[in-house]
């Protein structure tokens, strides 16, 4: 780890400025993400208002046990992520790598369970489109499943991207690129990961819990 090239990019005056710019950049990006999911939430809200019974009935088709387990898995991954960031602040190289790898594992567990859920829905014929299983009165539930797949699918896509990025950061950390003076990339990756978790924290009650009792 001798001769690590200076992490300061040529166009910044010092590492503080660079760190502030990176952090603000990630926050700004997260704002765009909120608006991105916001469009989906707006559509969901409109149709939930128009068809409350159909939405309530449709949410019974979701597997609440798997959904709850997945929520717990994601919250645990947020914990390991923040431990990784903490390790980066303290400059503990091995710990960064371990916690980031744990985060990846938990992220993959989440995606695996999600894939199981999707498979169940496929076998029950609940994929919206020409082959949709529910007909007659129940046909109105198609909109719930359209939003279920779009919202959780979009979320899962963000998880996949997150896993790849955390993997890259873990690799760089293993190579010793980060130090207590320079750990901005670990920090902003954490921000992204927590954001994706928070989206799920909204998706879970909206899709699984509302109208269930």
């Amino acid at each position: 780890m001798s001769e690590v090239p200076s992490p300061l990019a040529h166009h910044f005056d010092d590492l503080t400025q660079q760190k502030e710019a990176t952090t603000l950049g990630m926050w700004t990006f997260l704002v765009t993400e909120i608006l991105f999911f916001g469009g989906l939430f707006a559509g969901y809200a409109q149709y939930r208002t128009l068809y409350p019974q159909a939405f309530a009935a449709a949410s019974h088709h979701l597997d609440i046990v798997l959904g709850t387990i997945n929520t717990a898995v994601l919250i645990a991954s947020s914990l390991t992520m923040v431990m990784g960031v903490r390790a980066a602040q303290l400059g503990r190289r091995k710990q960064i790598v371990i916690f980031l790898l744990l985060t990846i594992v938990l992220g993959l567990v989440f995606l695996g369970i999600k894939a199981v859920e999707y498979t169940h829905k496929y076998h029950e014929g609940l994929i919206p489109g020409p082959g949709f299983a529910l007909q007659g009165e129940e046909r109105m539930q198609v909109r719930f499943f359209a939003f279920y797949f779009l919202m959780t699918g979009m979320h899962a896509l963000h998880m996949v991207v997150g896993v790849v990025i955390v993997g890259m950061i873990a690799f760089f950390a293993w190579r010793g690129r980060y130090s207590p003076e320079y750990y901005g990339p670990v920090d902003v990756t954490g921000l992204y990961w927590h954001f994706v978790d928070i989206v799920w924290i909204f998706l879970f009650p909206l899709l699984y819990l509302l109208g269930r009792h």
Partner: peptide, 20 residues
């Protein structure tokens, strides 16, 4: 981003006929 999601919904509607 809102345009992006509108276009995603549009494309999903057109390709998979989910009827949004």
């Amino acid at each position: 981003p809102v345009l992006a999601i509108a276009v995603v919904l549009l494309a999903a509607d057109r390709i998979f006929q989910i009827g949004v």
